[in-house]
């Protein structure tokens, strides 16, 4: 077990298959945020939970090797800056801060409702990355700095 951290092989196999479905579901929630219940926050948490699932099954060392954590770390402020940029674009295009700048489309289409869809995607990315980074840091904390002995 020492060479292979994490849960048993069965759990790993199940996780390997299901994690993509969970991520897909997260994206579905994000992209349909303006039509059905859910949105950027819910979808972002679903994606973060998918990563968390992988981390629980494979152990955090493996995840640290697989995923580029510092890239995920950077993605979070970039998403925030993008949100702010959307707001400033609103001023630049004459509508006022956070005014709508994307074509509204027709009601009940997936690609509709202007800013709302764009902002949902930005928030989804931000929430997923941010929450995963927090959990990852909580997980590695005990090993690097000796939380408990």
């Amino acid at each position: 077990m020492k060479q292979q951290p994490g849960l048993t092989l069965i759990a790993k196999t199940v996780t390997r298959i299901s994690v993509w479905l969970i991520v897909l579901y997260g994206f579905y929630i994000i992209f349909h945020g303006h039509l059905t219940p859910g949105g950027g926050f819910a979808g972002g948490v679903v994606i973060a939970l998918a990563f968390l699932n992988v981390m629980l099954a494979y152990g955090h060392e493996t995840v640290t090797r697989w995923l580029n954590i510092s890239f995920m770390h950077d993605l979070e402020p970039s998403a925030g800056a993008l949100f702010l940029t959307m707001g400033i674009l609103g001023i630049a295009l004459g509508g006022g801060f956070l005014a709508n700048v994307v074509h509204r489309g027709t009601l009940f289409n997936v690609f509709s409702s202007g800013n709302i869809l764009v902002l949902n995607i930005i928030i989804g990315v931000k929430v997923a990355m941010g929450l995963f980074v927090v959990v990852w840091s909580l997980a590695i904390f005990r090993f690097f700095e000796g939380g408990d002995k």
Partner: peptide
């Protein structure tokens, strides 16, 4: 706002 989910439209548009 052309969004079906009114809560979503308040969260991200009216009170963005």
């Amino acid at each position: 706002t052309h969004a079906a989910n009114i809560v979503s439209s308040i969260v991200l548009d009216y009170r963005g």
